[in-house]
Amino acid sequence: MAKAKYLEVAQIILDRIKDKTYVAGEPLPNQEILANELDVSRLTVKKALDGLERKGLVYKQSGLGTFVSSDIPIQSGIDSPANMFTGLKNLMGTDNVRSNILHFSVEFPNEQVQKNLSLKKTEPVYNILRLRIVDNQPLIIEHTYMPVDLVPDLSEEILHSSIYNYIHHTLKLKFGHAYRKIKATKSSEYDQKYLMAKKDDPMLELEQIVWLTNGQPIEYSTSRNRYDQRDYTILENTRF
């Protein structure tokens, strides 16, 4: 699958930041200029800049444009923005991410899933367990529940690719807001088997509920990774 166009634009801008074509503290060309130069829409440029801003690489000043940020000294290669909801493939790029399906079924929800997804006990959900692999290394175990009515025709082919791309581009659904809780926990048998965690290794667990713009919850999930393989970061854009 080809990389999304806005990710290609983001990579071009990132490369220019790295080679000092765009210098820290200086404004980037405006969206219209970048769109014309790269032969894409202004919306594509905006999505690219929004993604770079979430990573702390650029910042926006109202009425002045988008500027290159100074380097973040504590940033590392395993950082993942805690407020990004584009999916792992869109975050990491499509070429180096794949999924192994550990479990996929349709079933009636238990009490916790009913509560988190505002469902009745007779409303079926997908129960999805995937091992996410990046650069041929196991990185994350994702356990996801989604209402069948909101995400129809979900298939193993989609699970091997990107559920979020299917939701956004095929079903034309948009996320409105999300709740995320990150905590430390002990390794489980699944962590030890699939993530090569040791029995005493601490794990990072991200638990989340995602709602659509109409207020309907569409996802309840947990994601687990080893303590030494992924960090979660938050960049605060404070404007006074």
Rank of each mutant, 00 (worst) to 15 (best):
A2V: 11
Y6D: 08
A10V: 01
L14E: 13
L14H: 15
L14S: 14
I17S: 03
V23C: 08
V23N: 09
A24W: 04
E26S: 12
E26K: 15
P29Y: 01
P29C: 01
E32I: 09
N36W: 05
L38S: 06
D39V: 11
V45P: 01
K47V: 08
T66V: 10
V68A: 03
S69Y: 07
G77P: 11
G77T: 10
S80C: 11
T86Q: 15
G87L: 03
T94R: 12
N96L: 07
I101Q: 04
Q112K: 10
N116T: 06
S118Y: 09
S118N: 14
V125W: 02
Y126I: 01
R130W: 10
I133H: 03
Q137N: 13
L139N: 04
I140M: 12
I140K: 08
H143G: 04
Y145E: 03
M146C: 06
L154V: 00
S155V: 00
H160F: 15
N165K: 14
A184C: 14
T185A: 13
K199V: 12
D200E: 15
P202Q: 02
Q208S: 15
L212C: 04
T213G: 03
T213Y: 05
E219N: 06
S223F: 15
R224D: 06
Y232Q: 03
R239V: 11
